[in-house]
Design a protein around this nucleic acid. Structure first.
Length: 783
DNA sequence: TTCTAGCCCATTTTT
DNA sequence: TGGGCTAGAA
């Protein structure tokens, strides 16, 4: 029998309840830093080990590739560790390298390979590769399994073309961007064009619905789906085809959803359909060998502008759960113990978020000491603010050997704020990394190469075809393309069909005709090899045959060199993909690339200061955090100040920012700020007034403190000293709250001995009573 | 077909 | 302030 206790022993009682949950619904309300990933991974392990659930029957959904990858890695490690213990009686680390590798690959083959862990989009695209040909669109459109996935800019371009060229609308009134936004929103609510029209029966609503209908038609003509379709189409398919739904319902007996507060209506529908096999939730009772386990934190819901709706989380109890009050319910667990931040930081976060009305009551409990005060700095302007922040970083780094550049993060509301900080970081030669910004797969050269690959895999993809038909320049200009396209329209054929029709092409001017057939030959050559050629070989061949690399080399500029390097990087990514996925096809690589956010988000650099928006910081933690630009109009942003719901979201964003900090938190605001070229006076954010005054250390009249009051090292020394002094019986009394390094928070229940020779009995929730000598073990008091 | 001056605009963005 | 896009020139 497996020793289940081995990995459950480290859990606190709430975590344990979550991890040991077997069948039925469970909502895990997981505060920041409360060990939510741990609960998820341990539960999966527990399902497999204790309840003998077949890994094939487990579906775990995340929102980011990074979260999915982390979960996979942690589960793999958990199992490998267990194997090492049971086979060798040693921890994994203690085994020789080759044995570690052998165990890991054994675990992969027998367990993790069969788990479905991934983002909503990746999982849905996998389902669609099986079943999209069974989907019946009401407009009669159809897709095949080679479908392309259009990214945001492809989608945007398509909408723009429809608004301006097809429907001849005024693009001032119907800004393609906001039209695209409205369409995306409709899809995320699960609305068809007709539904959208019903929801908004005015001229604007009708017009947008019209664009939506045309847009969907165009997507189908390209055999393409946008990100929203990847979720919406499976939902529609499940609703119209009982067999298909029954298959997946039977397959996914245990469904886990991470970041549940970020789900939108369509994603919720997908989960609900899979769980209940299409039945209404209130009628669904058949929980035998079946569960839905969702983890989230309404206080960290910051993506409502992406149609995320945290009310879905708030409604879970009425929806799947028993609906009983918090104290009696068996379908909700709260993880409130925070293992990340000092008590001061947590108290500030708790006080701030109390000002929100729409939430589940929850208070983060500290398991660590009070820590330092939060430092509030008033800067003259954005330059002064940057100077302050960089000064602090330099001093802290110098005075604290345990801190390195990677220990610091500068968090801001808008990307535009990064400039001033970059300047000062550059001036002092401090390495830094801006998280976000232009993504690898959004680079022009990468989109070009992927355009070729998509055109090969899916020739109906006219958007990709047009992207590369004259890249590099091969003399197929606008007029030629226009003529080909209008021929396609007249004959009701795709552009590709026209391009490959020799008779039609021969009507073009001689030079153009030759260029076109040269291009189509290249594409056709590789299409023929698509099935039985490894993707890397196709990529290399296309790069050569198309002249893309040759063209970049010929340019010889620095910019072209950079592009070449990125193309090389993409090639490496294909190779790596082949290595990691046995029998990988080009189609698989393309799906992966369309859904990947970045290549290098794997490496977390220890040697660079991180700069990022508050949104990007969710899920991360840093020893020292600078929350900058905390001013009215900037944060909260002026667009959110009128509407109470938006203001609450800004407050949650602030809450996310504060809870990123482990040891020290600095908050700053400026008296005036240059925005878009003009200087504007600025006022401190209302969020500052909501923080407890006694936790804030403020700079007097904005003067720069030369040195930090107490660098971390000194604080640590001081704490150690305090604990040494605390050895007199008089210093302790029953009821004192303390924090122990390994056991966490606890309370003194007995004091033994007298004078200098004492020891304490301390009760740690979930771990029983321990006898501790405060002279030997460092204890931190909690006030 | 390609280049460039000037115009407009401006949160956040897991996929 | 600066990046992206368009209209007009080369």
């Amino acid at each position: 029998m497996p020793k289940t206790a081995d990995f459950l022993a480290h859990l606190n009682p709430s975590q344990r309840r979550a991890v040991e949950h077997y069948c039925g619904p469970l909502l895990v309300v997981a505060g920041a830093g409360s060990g939510k990933t741990r609960a998820l991974t341990y539960r999966i392990a527990n399902l497999v080990l204790t309840h003998r659930v077949d890994p094939e029957n487990i579906l775990a959904v995340t929102f980011t590739n990074k979260a999915a990858r982390e979960m996979k890695e942690r589960i793999e490690k958990l199992f490998a560790e267990r194997e090492a213990q049971s086979k060798h009686g040693k921890p994994l680390e203690a085994l020789p390298e080759h044995e570690q590798t052998r165990l890991k690959s054994f675990v992969y083959k027998t367990i993790t390979k069969d788990l479905w862990i991934g983002t909503f989009h990746a999982l849905c695209s996998r389902i669609l590769r099986f079943d999209i040909e069974k989907f019946r669109h009401p407009g009669g459109y159809s897709w095949n399994r080679n479908f392309s996935i259009f990214d945001e800019s492809d989608a945007q371009a398509l909408v723009k073309d429809i608004v301006i060229n097809q429907l001849n609308l005024d693009d001032k009134k119907f800004d393609p961007r906001s039209v695209r936004y409205a369409i995306s929103n409709a899809k995320n609510q699960g609305w068809s064009p007709a539904d959208l029209e019903r929801e908004q029966p005015n001229f604007r609503g009708r017009t947008i619905a019209n664009v939506y209908a045309e847009y969907q038609k165009a997507l189908a003509a390209n055999n393409a789906l946008d990100f929203d379709d990847l979720i919406l189409i499976p939902v529609q398919l499940f609703r119209q085809n009982e067999q298909v739904l029954a298959y997946w319902h039977k397959r996914f007996r245990h469904i886990l959803v991470d970041e549940y507060q970020d789900t939108n209506r369509t994603q919720y529908d997908l989960i609900r359909l899979l769980v209940t096999n299409g039945e209404e939730t209130e009628n669904f009772k058949d929980w035998e060998y079946r569960s839905v386990f969702v983890v989230g934190d309404a206080d960290q819901s910051i993506y409502s502008f992406r149609a995320a709706d945290f009310r879905i989380l708030l409604e879970f109890q009425d929806d799947f759960g028993d609906g009983l009050p918090d104290d009696d319910t068996r379908t909700m667990v709260k993880l409130e113990e925070n293992y990340r931040s000092t008590a001061n930081i947590l108290e500030a976060a708790n006080e701030l978020i109390e000002n929100n009305t729409e939430r589940i009551d929850k208070v983060l409990r500290a398991t660590r000491g009070a820590g330092e005060s939060i430092f509030l700095f008033r800067a003259e302007d954005e330059t002064d603010e940057a100077r302050f922040v960089i000064d602090q970083i330099r001093q802290l780094e110098q005075n604290n050997p345990e801190l390195h550049w990677g220990s610091f993060a500068i968090l801001y509301r808008t990307n535009a704020q990064s400039r001033a900080f970059e300047e000062f970081l550059g001036r002092y030669g401090i390495p830094y990394n801006i998280v976000g910004g232009l993504r690898f797969y959004d680079r022009k050269e990468i989109k070009d190469v992927l355009g070729y690959l998509r055109a090969i895999a899916n020739p109906q993809d006219t958007v990709s075809l047009k992207r590369v038909i004259n890249t590099p320049r091969r003399g197929i200009g606008k007029t030629t393309i226009d003529r080909l396209e209008s021929a396609a329209r007249d004959l009701d054929r795709t552009l590709w069909e026209v391009l490959t029709d020799e008779t039609l092409v021969s009507t073009l001017a001689g030079r153009s005709a030759k260029a076109v057939s040269g291009f189509t030959n290249t594409i056709q050559t590789w299409q023929a090899k698509l099935e039985d050629t490894p993707p890397a070989e196709i990529v290399q061949g296309v790069l050569e045959d198309s002249g893309y690399v040759a063209d970049l080399k010929a340019q010889g500029t620095n910019e072209a060199d950079d592009r070449l390097q990125n193309v090389q990087e993409l090639y490496n990514a294909v190779l790596q993909f082949e290595e990691e996925n046995e029998g990988a096809t080009l189609l698989m690589f393309l799906a992966n690339a369309s859904l990947a956010s970045d290549l290098d988000n794997t490496k977390e650099d220890q040697r660079q200061v991180s700069l990022m928006t508050l949104h990007s910081s969710k899920g991360l933690e840093f020893p020292v955090v600078f929350l900058v630009g905390v001013e009215q109009g900037l944060f909260p942003n002026f667009r959110s100040m009128e509407d109470p719901a938006s203001l609450e979201e800004e407050r949650r964003l602030c809450y996310v920012g504060i809870t990123r900090a482990k040891e020290r938190l600095f908050i700053s605001y400026a008296r005036e700020r240059r925005l878009y070229g003009t200087r504007e006076p600025a006022a401190p954010s209302l969020f500052l007034a909501e923080l407890p005054k006694e936790l804030l250390l403020t700079s007097a009249v904005g003067a720069l403190p030369k040195k930090l009051a107490t660098p971390i090292r000194e604080v640590k020394a001081k704490r150690a000293q305090e604990s040494l002094l605390n050895t007199h019986a008089d210093d302790w009394k029953v009821g004192d709250r303390v924090v122990h390094k390994a056991y966490g928070a606890g309370q003194v229940t007995h004091i033994f001995g007298a004078g200098n020779k004492i020891c304490l009995a301390i009760k740690f929730p979930g771990q029983g009573q321990k006898i501790i000598d405060p002279k030997i073990t460092t204890l931190q008091r909690v006030i």
